[in-house]
Simulated assay, not measured.
Amino acid sequence: MIQQIGYTAEALATGAGRNGHVRSDDGRIDLDLAAPVALGGSGEGANPEQLFASGYAACFHSAMQSVARAQKIDLTDSSVGARVHIGANGDGGFEIAVELEVVVPSLPHDQAQAIADAAHLVCPYSNATRGNISVQVTVSDD
């Protein structure tokens, strides 16, 4: 449970959901949406899975930076990629699953993995999804 709110993001979806429009209250996000071709849509707009992947990748990377900073480790040239999968769950609904790929070229694999593991414990997206969806964190050497 949040003990003290530090920031609140607001967005409004209008139109036809996946084929509508989203806009943040400050206008920084202002996008037309379209279901991806793989789900029978036109693919001519962003989709919620892309937005979730972008947010999770950025948040996880920030969590890694925080963990590394506390250990006085430099993560220059590091990156986090996110893949968000969506598919039927067998109960008439849909589920998502996430793969995070961490690259830290300046560190040995084991050290990068330790930072990624620690970040997975503090990242708000990881904490929100833990126990709800599959999230796989992999450290890649390239």
Results as ranks from 00 to 15, higher is better:
residue 128 A to I: 10
residue 85 H to T: 12
residue 117 D to R: 08
residue 91 D to G: 13
residue 115 I to W: 01
residue 105 P to L: 06
residue 111 Q to G: 02
residue 99 E to W: 05
residue 113 Q to A: 15
residue 114 A to V: 04
residue 115 I to T: 01
residue 115 I to H: 00
residue 128 A to Y: 12
residue 96 I to Y: 05
residue 89 N to T: 06
residue 114 A to L: 05
residue 79 S to V: 03
residue 76 T to A: 14
residue 95 E to A: 12
residue 120 H to D: 13
residue 97 A to R: 11
residue 67 V to F: 04
residue 101 E to D: 09
residue 86 I to F: 02
residue 105 P to D: 10
residue 80 V to R: 08
residue 107 L to F: 06
residue 107 L to S: 02
residue 114 A to N: 06
residue 102 V to R: 04
residue 95 E to W: 06
residue 74 D to V: 04
residue 113 Q to W: 09
residue 73 I to S: 00
residue 104 V to K: 02
residue 110 D to I: 08
residue 89 N to M: 02
residue 121 L to G: 12
residue 117 D to N: 13
residue 91 D to V: 13
residue 110 D to T: 08
residue 119 A to I: 06
residue 87 G to Y: 04
residue 112 A to G: 07
residue 69 R to C: 09
residue 93 G to D: 15
residue 72 K to R: 14
residue 126 S to I: 03
residue 121 L to T: 12
residue 82 A to W: 08
residue 118 A to W: 00
residue 99 E to H: 05
residue 127 N to I: 08
residue 114 A to E: 08
residue 87 G to H: 05
residue 83 R to S: 12
residue 98 V to L: 10
residue 82 A to D: 07
residue 95 E to R: 14
residue 92 G to Q: 11
residue 82 A to G: 05
residue 73 I to Q: 00
residue 70 A to D: 13
residue 98 V to A: 06
residue 121 L to R: 15
residue 73 I to T: 02
residue 115 I to C: 00
residue 125 Y to R: 00
residue 88 A to S: 14
residue 96 I to Q: 10
residue 89 N to G: 08
residue 116 A to S: 04
residue 123 C to D: 15
residue 97 A to G: 15
residue 111 Q to Y: 01
residue 79 S to F: 03
residue 118 A to K: 00
residue 90 G to E: 09
residue 75 L to T: 07
residue 84 V to M: 06
residue 114 A to K: 07
residue 115 I to Q: 02
residue 98 V to E: 00
residue 81 G to E: 14
residue 111 Q to I: 09
residue 115 I to N: 03
residue 127 N to P: 00
residue 72 K to G: 04
residue 75 L to W: 11
